[in-house]
C-alpha cells in the first residue's frame, strides 16, 4: 500500500494551530429508522490532516458529507469556521463555498470545459471578474500539472486527470478546509499515485484536510491523526504511528489485518 508514496515529504509547513476549524458535538444522524451516525464528537484544528478509515457502511462518507451539509444531521451540532450548520439557507451556501469537497466519482460538469468547470463557482458565487477567475484557475491547473488540458472537456481526460481537475476546481474557491471522499477509489492503480501526489502537495502547504480513504500509505505519510469508524461511531483515533503499530480495539486490529494482511 505504501509504495504509492515514494518521495520525501516536506513537513515544514505542516503545522497544527490551536485554532479550531471544525467542531462536532454529540452529532447523530438517521436515514429513516437506521441510525447511521451515533454520538460523533470530533474537533479538527486548523492545519490538521485527518484520515478516516473503516469498513464500508461505517458512516465515514456520511460524516464528511454532514460537514458540508450535503446530508442533514438530526441531533447535535457541527460548527465549521465559527458558523453552525443549520437549515438556514444563506448560511449553507456561505459555508459550502468555504469548504472544498472532492468526490469519489469526480463529479466534473461534462458539458463545460476544464477551465469553465474551474471558473464557474468563483464567477457566480464569489463574483470574481472572469479574467481574474481564469488566472486563478490556470494557476491551480498548473499546480495539479494539467494546464494544457484547460480547453478540453472532462470526457477527454483520464480518471486521474479528472480527479486532479476536481481538486483544482475546489481550490479555485480558495477553501480553508478540504474534504476528500474516497478520492482514489474509482481510479486505476496507475492513476492513484498522481492524485495522491497532488493531495500531499496540498498537505505540505498547510491545508486543513479530512480524507476518507483506504490508502494507508497516504495516512502514514501525511496524516497527523487517523480515525477508525465502525457502525456509525468513532471506535479509535490516534497518531498514524500508534494506530498502525499499536492498535487498541479488536475491531481495529481485525480491520488492519484485513487490509494490510497480504
Amino acid at each position: 500500500m505504501s509504495e504509492a508514496i515514494s518521495r520525501q515529504i516536506d513537513r515544514s509547513q505542516m503545522t497544527v494551530s490551536d485554532e479550531v476549524a471544525i467542531q462536532i458535538n454529540e452529532m447523530n444522524k438517521w436515514y429513516g429508522n437506521f441510525h447511521v451516525l451515533r454520538d460523533i464528537n470530533l474537533t479538527v484544528n486548523k492545519g490538521e490532516r485527518i484520515v478516516i478509515a473503516g469498513p464500508s457502511g461505517s458512516g465515514k462518507s456520511t460524516l464528511i458529507r454532514c460537514i458540508n451539509r450535503l446530508e442533514e444531521h438530526q441531533a447535535g451540532t457541527i460548527v465549521v469556521d465559527g458558523t453552525e450548520r443549520t437549515s438556514d439557507l444563506k448560511n449553507i451556501d456561505k459555508v459550502r463555498s468555504e469548504v472544498g469537497m472532492v468526490f469519489q466519482h469526480f463529479n466534473l460538469f461534462p458539458h463545460l470545459t476544464i477551465l469553465e468547470n474551474c471558473t464557474l463557482a468563483p464567477i457566480w458565487v464569489r463574483k470574481t471578474p472572469r479574467r481574474e477567475a481564469e488566472e486563478t484557475a490556470m494557476h491551480y491547473l498548473t499546480k495539479v500539472k494539467i494546464p494544457e488540458q484547460a480547453h478540453k472537456y472532462p470526457g477527454q481526460l483520464s480518471g486521474g486527470q479528472q480527479q486532479r481537475v476536481a481538486i483544482a476546481r475546489s481550490l479555485c474557491m480558495r477553501p480553508r478546509i478540504m474534504l476528500f471522499d474516497e478520492p482514489t477509489s474509482a481510479l486505476d492503480p496507475e492513476m492513484i499515485k498522481e492524485v495522491l501526489d497532488t493531495m500531499i502537495e496540498l498537505a505540505e502547504e498547510g491545508m486543513t484536510m479530512i480524507c476518507v480513504t483506504h490508502e494507508m500509505g497516504f495516512a502514514q505519510a501525511v496524516a497527523n491523526r487517523v480515525i477508525f469508524m465502525d457502525q456509525g461511531q468513532i471506535v479509535e483515533q490516534n497518531t498514524p504511528h500508534e494506530f498502525f503499530n499499536n492498535p487498541q480495539s479488536d475491531r481495529t486490529k481485525l480491520f488492519l489485518s484485513q487490509i494490510l494482511g497480504h
Partner: peptide, 21 residues
C-alpha cells in the same frame, strides 16, 4: 447523476445557479 447536484451544491452554487449552469 446525483453527483452533479452534489458537486454544484458543494461549490456553493444556489438553486437557480445550479439549475441554470
Amino acid at each position: 447523476p446525483r453527483g452533479q447536484y452534489e458537486a454544484a451544491d458543494a461549490l456553493g452554487l444556489d438553486y437557480w445557479q445550479a439549475q441554470r449552469f
